[in-house]
Design a protein around this nucleic acid. Structure first.
Lengths: 142, 142
DNA sequence: CCCATCGTGCAATAAAGTTGCATAGACCAA
DNA sequence: TTGGTCTATGCAACTTTATTGCACGATGGG
């Protein structure tokens, strides 16, 4: 998703110690063109070197808390994770295939939403706007 | 949410047998002005008459499959349920408070999205568009 | 009345995520 | 270097949310 991103610098910029595991988690997420579930990330990491499931969850929480990674809900049960919007990546909607469970990133322009205007009239704090389309992807259609 | 809705007729219109439990589940969902979690629905039902937790899940699945009820994801773990859009209820976005876990329905006009145009160019099937804002509600702000 | 079907309950299980505690490693001051 | 402190990680146990398998009971048609 982001060849311009230097994951180590991203960690440092958030004042997080750089550890192997953190760098690896961020790499797996960043190198994918679509968001992954915690289980996907865990399995991918396991293939290259041992890591504990709980460590993955903890690192994901940390990265989400520091705004490096975004937690995306699905029509299903598990949460998915992708790089959070930043100067290289604008916020964008996602498409979730109910059949195969894969999530796609959609073009930021494809569906626009004026949430700023709404935010001004809303009597609470808005941290995030999530737009998700659910359906069947073209591969599963056949 | 819907004083005009006759839940028994809704069930019949979907060719579902009308049972006490189904009517009760639909009533609890329909009489609320905001979506509820399965646990909320179960507890509410328990207060008036015994029902099994699994039955609630099964009825929810059934109602969702028949398009009477809509499953709404949250920033958290559990799914929430509200009446599905129909002639009385237009699709609308939701606001989820990360602190208290309550979900609010927002005005259909407050955030509009042109998904029809997008749908024409998308090479898959789109069943549903979900727009959710996450943040802190005004009660939890203080 | 008998059989088939469907809705429900109960127990067990699964999936996804969290917590508590122990160890190991990094970093710093003396 | 040593000792102290802090953080990251691993492991086991647990929680929450949801699903499955099986049995029972009610209902309606032949």
């Amino acid at each position: 998703m982001c060849l311009q991103c230097d994951y180590e610098s991203l960690l440092r910029a958030s004042r997080l110690d750089v550890t192997d595991n953190r760098r690896r988690v961020l790499e797996v997420i960043g190198n994918n063109s679509y968001p992954l579930s915690a289980a996907d990330i865990f399995q991918t990491l396991q293939r290259s070197a041992a890591i504990n499931r709980v460590t993955v969850y903890r690192i994901l929480d940390l990265l989400v808390a520091h705004g490096l990674v975004e937690r995306i809900s699905t029509g299903g049960r598990a949460a998915y994770f992708g790089l959070a919007p930043n100067e290289h990546h604008r916020p964008h909607p996602h498409f979730y295939c109910k059949r195969c469970g894969q999530m796609e990133c959609l073009n930021p322009e494809s569906l626009t939403l004026d949430s700023d205007a709404f935010g001004k009239t809303f009597p609470g704090r808005i941290d995030k706007v999530e737009v998700r389309l659910d359906g069947i992807c073209k591969n599963c259609m056949r």
